[in-house]
Design a protein around this nucleic acid. Structure first.
Lengths: 339, 339
DNA sequence: GACGTGGACTGAACCGGATAAGCTGAGCCA
DNA sequence: TGGCTCAGCTTATCCGGTTCAGTCCACGTC
C-alpha cells in the first residue's frame, strides 16, 4: 500500500502542490470551493502529511520530549509518572503533537539527550522533571535555547518557564492538622534530599514545627522506594521516643511504612498516624486507607504540556502556579492514644 | 545557537556534503584519513544529523510507536507498563531509536493512530499491547503493512510477529502448588475478560482444576483496578463456601484483596492464601508480603523492542516465546487451617 | 480603453540529509 | 606512451512538504 503524498492529492484535484498545501493548512491563497474539493480528496485517499517532510521545511518537529532519569526500579512503582504522562499525552494529542520518551541514567546522560534532540531537531521542546538544587540541566537548556518547562520549583528554574505547586503550604496544613488532632511528636520520611521539592518541604516542615513548638520533629531521608521507606520507618519506630505520626513524601513509602507498623504490632491509627504525599488509588487499597495529600496529576501534566506548547509558539517563559495539594483524611490518621 | 548541518561539517573539512555523509555512515568512498578528520570535526562542532532530513531521504523514521489504550486511572497504578516501557526504552536508545508514546481511549482510536503514524511516516513500527480475542487491530496493521510486534498470545496474532509468555504453564504450576499445600477451594480474580491472556489463563485454570478434581474452583471477572479487585474479593469471601486461596490476575487487585480480607477479620495466610500475578515491588511492601508470579518485565520489553527492530529491518515475522513467570512463595500462602 | 488592483493559482527554491552517477588523478601494465 | 582500473572524491537528484515570487485573469475606475 503506497502512502499518498501531497503530489497525489494535487494530481487528483488538478492543482499544484502549493495550492494543496495552502488548502490543508488553512492559509489564504485558494478559493473556498477549491479548498473544499482538496480537503475532500485528501480525506478520500487517506492523506496525512509526512512528519519528516513537514519538520524539514517548517523547522518544527511536531513532538515534545520527556526524559525520565529515575532507575527502572523506582520508575515502575510510583504511579506519579504514569499519571503525569497520561495528562501530558491528552493535551498533546489534542493538538496533534507526539510525545517522545527517553529513560536516562543520570543528569549527564539527560543533558546529552537534550543536546542530541536539539541537534536532530527531534523535538520542539522538553518537559523537565525532578528539579534538583543547582540543577545542571537548567543552564544546559538555556544555552541550547531549547524551549522547556520545568515541572517544579519555585526557585532554581533560571530563565526557563516553570510550573509549580505550593508544597510548603500543603505540608504546613498537614502538620497543623496533625497537631490539631493532638500529635506532638511528628516525623517525616522525605524523598531524595537533593530534589528541590524535598528541600522546600523540609524547610517548610522545620518552620512550622518550630512555630508550633514541636521540638521532637524529625526528618529522615529516603529514596522514594518502598524498601527504604520501610527501613526508615523501622528506625523511627524503634527509637525510645517514637513519633505518633509520620508524613511520607510519597505513597509507596507510606504503604511500606504502614506494613512495618503492623508488623511491629502497632495499630494504625491508634498507635501511629500516617499521611501519604501523592494520593494514588494505592492509598485506598490498603487497610486502613491512607490519609493523603493529593492533587490532579494528569491535569498537572496537561497544564505543563499546554505551557510548553505556548513557549514553543514563542510566548515568554512564565512561572505558573498550579493547584495546591489537598489533604484527604481517611482511616490512617486519628488523635494519639493517651499514654 | 545555530544548529550545525552537514554542510557546516563539509565546509570545515573542505570536502563535499556527500563525502561527509559517506564518512559518518561508515560507507566506502572516503579514505581513512579523511574519514577520521571528518568524524573529528563533526564531534568538535557538535553535529548530529537532522532526524527529519534523514527520515525524509532514507525513508526511515528512527522511532517506534507504542499506543496504550487503558484509561489513565488504571494505567497509573499498574507498575507493569512503566517496567515494560523502561525495558523497551533501554533497547531502543542503545540503537539510537526514539520511542513515541500515545495514550488512546479505545481500539478505534488506536487504529486511527496507527493509520496516522503510517501516513505521517512517524514511526518505523509499533508494539501492540493488551491483545484481545478477535482483535481488530491485527487486520488493520496487516493491511497497512506497518511492522509490528504483538506482545501477547499465543494465538490471535495473525501474520504479525509476536512475543508471548506461557501463562497457562505458570497458572497450572500455581494451582498445583496451592493444592500441594492442601487447598481444595481455589478462586481466581481475573482481569478484563476479553483480553487474550485472560482467556488463556481461564482455560488453563479450568483444565487444571478439572484434572485435579477441584469442583469448587471459581473464576470471577474484574478490570485490574483495586476497587474492582476488592469488590470481587468481598463477594468471594462472603459466600457460604468461601475459598481458602485466591489467585489474582495482577498485583494491584491482590493488594486490594489482602486489605479486604484483613478488613473482614480473616488472617492471611491462616484463613486465606493469596497469590498475585505480576511480581512488582508492591508485593513486598505489604504485610504479609505476597506470594507472586513474576518475571523480568523490563527484559520482556527489551526483547519485544529487539524483535520489532528485526522486523523493521526486514526479517520475517516470528513467534518468540519469552520466559515463563516463576512463582515466588512469600508470606501470603500457607496450608489452609483445618476446620 | 488604458490602467491599477487583488484574488487564485503556478513554478521553483529550499529545508538537510542519502545516494547514484560522473569526474579526476595515480598507479599499473602491455 | 597510451589505455585501463580503481580509489577518492564531487555533483546532481531525490525525498515531501512549505513558502515566496510571479503569472494570469476578472473586475472596477477614471
Amino acid at each position: 500500500m503506497k502512502r499518498p503524498t501531497i503530489a497525489d492529492v494535487a494530481r487528483h484535484a488538478g492543482v499544484s502542490k502549493g495550492a494543496v498545501s495552502y488548502a490543508l493548512n488553512g492559509q489564504p491563497g485558494v478559493s473556498d470551493a477549491t479548498r473544499q474539493r482538496i480537503l475532500a480528496i485528501a480525506t478520500e485517499i487517506g492523506f496525512s502529511p509526512s512528519s519528516a517532510a513537514r519538520a524539514l521545511s517548517a523547522a518544527t518537529a511536531g513532538a515534545i520530549g520527556l526524559a525520565l532519569c529515575r532507575p527502572a526500579r523506582i520508575l515502575g512503582v510510583e504511579p506519579f509518572f504514569m499519571a503525569l504522562i497520561s495528562g501530558v499525552e491528552a493535551e498533546l494529542s489534542a493538538r496533534s503533537y507526539a510525545l517522545t520518551l527517553q529513560v536516562v541514567a543520570d543528569h549527564d546522560a539527560e543533558i546529552a539527550v537534550y543536546r542530541r534532540w536539539w541537534g536532530e531537531r527531534r523535538v520542539d521542546g522538553v518537559l523537565v522533571c525532578d528539579l534538583r538544587t543547582d540543577d545542571r540541566r537548567i543552564p544546559a537548556l538555556e544555552q541550547l535555547q531549547l524551549p522547556a518547562v520545568v515541572i517544579g520549583g519555585p526557585g532554581g528554574t533560571g530563565e526557563l518557564a516553570s510550573l509549580w505547586s505550593d508544597d510548603a503550604a500543603a505540608l504546613t496544613e498537614t502538620v497543623e492538622y496533625l497537631v490539631a488532632l493532638g500529635h506532638r511528636r511528628i516525623a517525616r520520611v522525605a524523598g531524595l534530599p537533593d530534589l528541590r521539592h524535598t528541600e522546600i518541604r523540609t524547610d517548610a516542615f522545620t518552620a512550622v514545627c518550630q512555630r508550633l513548638g514541636l521540638v521532637d520533629a524529625v526528618t529522615v531521608w529516603s529514596d522514594y522506594s518502598g524498601e527504604e521507606g520501610g527501613r526508615a520507618t523501622r528506625r523511627l519506630l524503634s527509637s525510645t521516643q517514637r513519633p505518633t505520626a509520620v508524613i511520607y513524601d510519597n505513597d509507596v513509602m507510606a504503604i511500606a511504612g504502614l506494613s512495618v507498623a503492623q508488623e511491629m504490632g502497632l495499630g494504625v491509627p491508634t498507635d501511629l498516624s500516617i499521611v501519604a504525599w501523592d494520593d494514588s488509588p494505592l492509598c485506598r487499597l490498603v487497610h486502613p486507607p491512607l490519609t493523603a495529600l493529593g492533587r490532579d496529576i494528569p491535569a498537572y501534566g496537561a497544564h505543563a504540556a499546554r505551557q510548553l506548547l505556548a513557549v514553543v509558539a514563542g510566548q515568554p517563559a512564565g512561572r505558573v502556579q498550579d493547584e495546591t495539594a489537598r489533604l484527604t483524611p481517611r482511616g490512617s490518621t486519628a488523635g494519639p492514644r493517651a499514654r
